[in-house]
Design a protein around this nucleic acid. Structure first.
Length: 411
RNA sequence: CAGGGUGUGGCGCAGUUGGUAGCGCGCAGCGUUCGGGACGCUGAGGCCGUCGGUUCAAGUCCGAUCACCCUGACCA
């Protein structure tokens, strides 16, 4: 992706948020030109918003690839057959399906998740213990017919998710990989800027495991309630916050605090939940058929974007952590000399810099710089040129410093 | 799905007892401005969510319907 000149881009900032964007993340992301709403829970990602999404994906991709994960892209349209084998095509069982019909008469679903299709697909590729373990992930648009979409991009009917699935020959190997993903998730959320406030949280585990883990980011508008002890080493979702579980975790006497949080990721040990009904098997060393052990690991990519927007915004607008910011620098030229010098600086830095080259007054540019929330604002004007310098302002702290033009490249 | 609220130019809003739509922002042109969203003049842009009633006449009254927001429930 190339750079962006404000005068050329189609996006436009808004002084007032649309009335139908009540949530802070939706209001600011819309005002700053990152997203556009199509309908409740369904959003378009504009050039800036798409860059944020791509940055989040990049961080996740880098960390998962280190674990040996392979990226694929599954289809969004779903053949009901594998879903019928697990009972999940039923609207009684899964009540958020979007379903449609083939013109020839058959029924289709729009994928709300991908356990069934990926398990089914891998039947064609896994036949021996030599094929395992295997870690496959994708970034995919998920469709969930939520009764009520809300909170901007935090809860959509169409949203982007990273889903990783792991396949193993033994429970020990599943446990080993699960632990690796736990650590990788910690690194991912740290790099995304929400590490400090994102806790690995015990949640209900479903049929085959006692607990699953969620990654919950503390957020006032979060939909979940979590409980944490004083040193935050044990965090529980409300759904498992009871005496039995506390005893089980050896935390029976401890005091817990309550807070709201948004679930940004989860990890599950599926074991045979899908591989058994879909008959994903392999031949072991002794030529015996065995069922594959599975795990699944999700991160809500678009939700993470909303959480970051919501969490760090101040009264002037968005504040992006560096790894997710669509551009690192918001370049402002003031006056003829300032604009000419800014133009020179911009050349060759299109990938890191958004250049506000509009014939607008400084105040308007500053306001938009703050609204968009790029990490650093660089101002070049007669005033700064008198010192042969540019003014660099940190969006988060608001602190400014003069940097010599010669040193700006290094900055 | 229950309860509450809202639909009027791109965005935010006003519109009285029914009489044929107005303001701010934004947008276009000209001029003066130029380090915190400047100002003046001129101008473009709207079947008032949709459908159907009542009426000589409907943004306004009645009915239905759709969409959106909030709270709750739900969230495999």
């Amino acid at each position: 992706m190339r750079g962006m000149r404000f005068s050329k881009t189609f996006i436009k900032t808004l002084r007032t948020a649309p009335k139908d964007e009540a949530a802070k993340n939706g209001a600011l992301l819309t005002r700053a030109g990152y997203i556009h709403k199509e309908m409740a829970g369904v959003y378009d990602y504009l050039p800036l918003g798409l860059r944020v999404i791509e940055n989040i994906k990049r961080v996740i991709r880098e960390e998962l690839n280190k674990l040996g994960c392979e990226e694929v892209q599954m289809s969004a349209l779903q053949n009901p057959e594998p879903w019928e084998k697990t009972g999940r095509f039923s609207d009684q069982e899964v009540d958020i399906w979007f379903k449609t019909n083939l013109s020839s008469g058959g029924e289709l679903g729009l994928a709300p998740t991908h356990e069934e299709p990926i398990t089914n697909m891998l039947k064609s590729y896994i036949s021996s213990y030599k094929d395992l373990p295997l870690y496959v992930y994708q970034f995919q648009t998920k469709f969930r017919n939520e009764l009520r979409a809300k909170s901007g991009i935090l809860r959509g009917r169409e949203f982007l998710m990273k889903d990783l699935y792991s396949f193993h020959t033994s429970e020990e190997d599943l446990d080993r990989f699960y632990a690796e993903v736990e650590k990788a998730y910690g690194r991912i959320f740290a790099r995304l800027g929400i590490g400090e406030d994102t806790y690995e949280t015990f949640a209900s585990g479903g049929i085959f495991a006692k607990y699953s883990h969620e990654f919950q980011t503390v957020l006032p508008v979060g939909e979940d309630t979590i409980y944490y002890n004083t040193d935050k080493s044990i965090v529980l979702n409300k759904e498992v916050y009871n005496n039995e579980v506390l005893e089980d975790l050896g935390a029976a006497g401890e005091k817990f605090e309550e807070t709201t949080a948004a679930e940004v990721g989860n990890i599950f040990k599926l074991k045979f939940k899908y591989s058994e009904p879909l008959e994903l098997k392999y031949i072991d060393e002794e030529n015996k058929q065995q069922t594959v052990y599975m795990g699944c690991y999700g991160i809500g990519v678009s939700r993470v974007m909303g959480v970051i927007a919501e969490k760090f915004a101040d009264d002037k607008g968005l504040v992006w952590p560096e790894e997710v910011a669509p551009y690192k620098y918001y370049l402002v030229g003031i006056g003829e000399n300032g604009m000419a010098e800014a133009e020179k600086f911009y050349a060759g830095r299109e990938d890191t810099t958004l250049f506000d080259d509009r014939k607008a007054r400084p105040g308007e540019k500053f306001a938009d710089a703050e609204l968009m929330g790029l990490p650093y604002r660089i101002v070049i004007s007669d005033k700064t040129l008198a010192e042969d310098a540019a003014e660099v302002t940190d969006r988060r702290t608001g602190e400014s410093q003069m940097v010599k033009l010669a040193d700006l490249a290094k900055f």
